[in-house]
Design a protein around this nucleic acid. Structure first.
Lengths: 195, 195
DNA sequence: CTAATTTTGGACTGATCGGTCCTGAATTAT
DNA sequence: ATAATTCAGGACCGATCAGTCCAAAATTAG
């Protein structure tokens, strides 16, 4: 049973007085703002609006709620990216790169990139989630670059992903949004096969 | 008085029985491996081989030793990069990008990028160190790209820096070193002015 | 109604956190 | 030697950590 699905309720008993998905999203926001290590259970429970016992009963532990939030974020972000990639109008790649470079989190950057940086070397499951997420992103970009033969565009797609991800660090260090856009525009040189 | 310079010794008193620079470097390695929040004072003192009181006497606090280590790392990395940029043989830019993408820390990536990601949004001084570091990197790349007019190469230099920095995330998520090299090679499209 | 069941708030636990302090050892100046 | 000074080890501090537990409230089935 994953932490995101409530155990089946049929018999008697007091019903839950909070929305589990909303609580998970609140936890996600806290992890996004503060990172994993800097976030305490009190930070989480107060943001989620539930008590400590409800927290442990519904989500198991700090690590489990974190992984659940991370997976929810990944699914949401990948969904949005896939929607973009299927937009019939114009070239989807610049829009996708722009979304990667400023995933609405403002200076918080991308939750998954933050967590890969902070935890992946010591946390195999975070590394696995991050690996799958990035692989999917690369694939979506490659398909947008070269629908007929995405495999051929793998390296270019990876380079574009790296470019967009790299701008997150520039942004956190204070570079303006306009300068970030200018950097992303440089990626146009990678949009077409060399030659 | 900065934490890296010992107060002047003249009168009597027991001399220090450890090397301050070596101790600072040991602290740097721990922060590099574990990040700031996940590192405890005990982690630091045992790696540095000194006692708690010596630690506080010489370095002030966890935050101060961290900033000192960060600045030492920045100076060292920028020095190495500048040396590369002045190598007369061949094109220095690919070597610089390669150094940025695998700063000998293996899967630990780049200490400064890690710290910007973890702390910059909440820690102005870390953000300032990171901003200065990245600005210097951009400048070195721009000068290597266009010695006559580095300003004109700013955006391309930033894009190359972002590309190299982005590969650090790919590496942490498990991408092989060979794949990273292939990604960096894609940056060649940005080596020359468009047109 | 009563009995059964589940959630709730918050008290509680042992461990660990960053940081201070005190005592004794080591060293130098006289 | 003796006095002065600095260092090192580790006990100690209040605060906070992640996680447990329990009694009371809430709800439903019968």
């Amino acid at each position: 049973m994953s932490a995101t699905e409530t155990k089946s309720r049929s018999g008697p008993g007091r019903p839950r007085c909070y929305d589990e998905a909303a609580a998970l999203d609140a936890a996600l926001q806290v992890f996004w703002s503060q990172g994993f290590e800097a976030t305490s259970i009190d930070d989480l429970t107060s943001a989620m609006g539930i008590s400590r016992s409800s927290f442990y009963s519904a989500f198991g532990s700090k690590e489990q709620v974190f992984l659940a939030a991370l997976k929810a974020y990944s699914a949401r972000a990948l969904g949005a990216l896939q929607d973009m990639s299927q937009q019939p109008a114009g070239d989807p790649v610049p829009a996708m790169l722009s979304a990667l470079a400023s995933p609405d989190g403002g200076p918080r950057g991308c939750l998954l990139v933050n967590c890969i940086t902070e935890l992946a070397p010591h946390h195999p499951e975070v590394a696995a989630v991050g690996r799958a997420h990035l692989a999917r992103i690369e694939r979506l970009i490659a398909e947008a670059l070269s629908p007929a033969d995405p495999e051929a565009a793998t390296d270019r797609a990876r380079a574009l992903a790296a470019l967009a991800i790299g701008t997150l660090t520039l942004r956190k260090s204070g570079l303006s949004a306009e300068a970030i856009d200018a950097v992303l525009k440089q990626g146009h040189a990678l949009l077409v096969p060399p030659g």
